[in-house]
């Protein structure tokens, strides 16, 4: 069965999974720790508008999604902070707006829109070389910003009020963090698609949190878990001939649930009330 490694598309798929795992493993730690899962889901879904736009004006849908996800990240960040509307209301509205725009653009596009499904649910077996390069560049950007702003991201994630008091430009830093989430979503489009991306932003990081209290170690573990999930899912989908994105997610969920319940079981059997 190891001849599958020889296929070019498989090599690209594994490379994409590896690169995507680096981005989502690291950024996922912020998403989970700062509890911005819902806003991240909103950015991901709103980026569908960009995919539609890409089809409509004839540019790469991934490029369209990049532009749209950045715009929606900034819009969400600014409008959740500066309007009096509840944050989840703002997110819900923008989430649906992006998707609606995408649907309109696609219906305006003449002819058959191929591959639409793969942007929604991912199709890692069809990553072209050019897109690998884009993923690599985005990875480098994400890593560089995290290294540069590590202490700032840590501070605003932990205690935004105090960060403001000590003179940190917290709103700008928060918007930069949201933009990194937007870029991570773009990286993940091929792997699991915009609808499923939120699972890979939360499961590896949340699992990593089970094993460490330290954010840096959490990032390393989260990347490793993400690699395990995407690779396992990829091979299972190949062997069982299932949709790759969905298989990766289901694989992650099964491993996550198994680890969590095993740990729970182990800690509860250690209770002193054991009967021999």
């Amino acid at each position: 069965m190891f001849d599958i490694f020889g296929y070019h598309f498989m090599q690209n798929a594994m490379l994409a999974a590896l690169l995507a795992s680096i981005a989502c493993g690291i950024i996922g730690v912020y998403v989970v720790s700062k509890r911005i899962v819902f806003i991240s889901g909103g950015i991901a879904h709103a980026s569908f508008g960009g995919i539609g736009l890409g089809y409509f004006i004839g540019i790469s849908p991934v490029l369209g999604a990049t532009i749209f996800s950045i715009i929606s990240a900034i819009t969400m960040g600014v409008s959740t902070r500066r309007t009096r509307l509840p944050e989840d209301t703002v997110i819900g509205i923008l989430w649906a707006t992006g998707m609606a725009l995408g649907a309109i653009f696609i219906s305006l596009t003449p002819g058959y829109t191929t591959n639409l499904f793969s942007y929604l649910f991912g199709n890692i077996l069809t990553v072209p070389d050019s897109e690998l390069l884009l993923i690599l560049i985005l990875d480098v950007v994400i890593l560089a910003v995290v290294v540069l702003l590590y202490k700032e991201f840590l501070a605003i994630s932990f205690d935004e009020e105090y960060s403001t008091v000590i003179g940190m430009p917290t709103e700008k830093i928060y918007l930069i963090l949201l933009c990194l989430i937007a870029l991570t979503i773009v990286v993940m489009i091929r792997v699991v698609g915009i609808i499923l991306v939120i699972a890979l932003l939360t499961i590896p990081a949340s699992l990593a949190r089970q094993f460490t209290n330290d954010m840096k170690k959490m990032m390393v573990l989260s990347v490793i878990f993400s690699i395990i999930f995407t690779f396992t899912g990829l091979f299972l989908s190949y062997i069982l001939d299932l949709a790759s994105g969905a298989t990766i997610i289901i694989t992650s969920v099964i491993i996550f649930a198994t680890v969590i319940s095993t740990r729970k079981l182990l800690s509860s059997t250690r209770l002193p009330s054991q009967k021999m």
């Binding site: 730690v29 720790s33 509890r35 840590l154 994630s157 932990f158 205690d159 009020e161 949190r209 460490t212 209290n213 330290d214 954010m215 959490m218």
Partner: peptide, 11 residues
């Protein structure tokens, strides 16, 4: 009050 998340990974 410390409004921080008690579970936050920071020492």
């Amino acid at each position: 009050k410390s409004f921080f998340d008690k579970n936050f990974p920071i020492n």
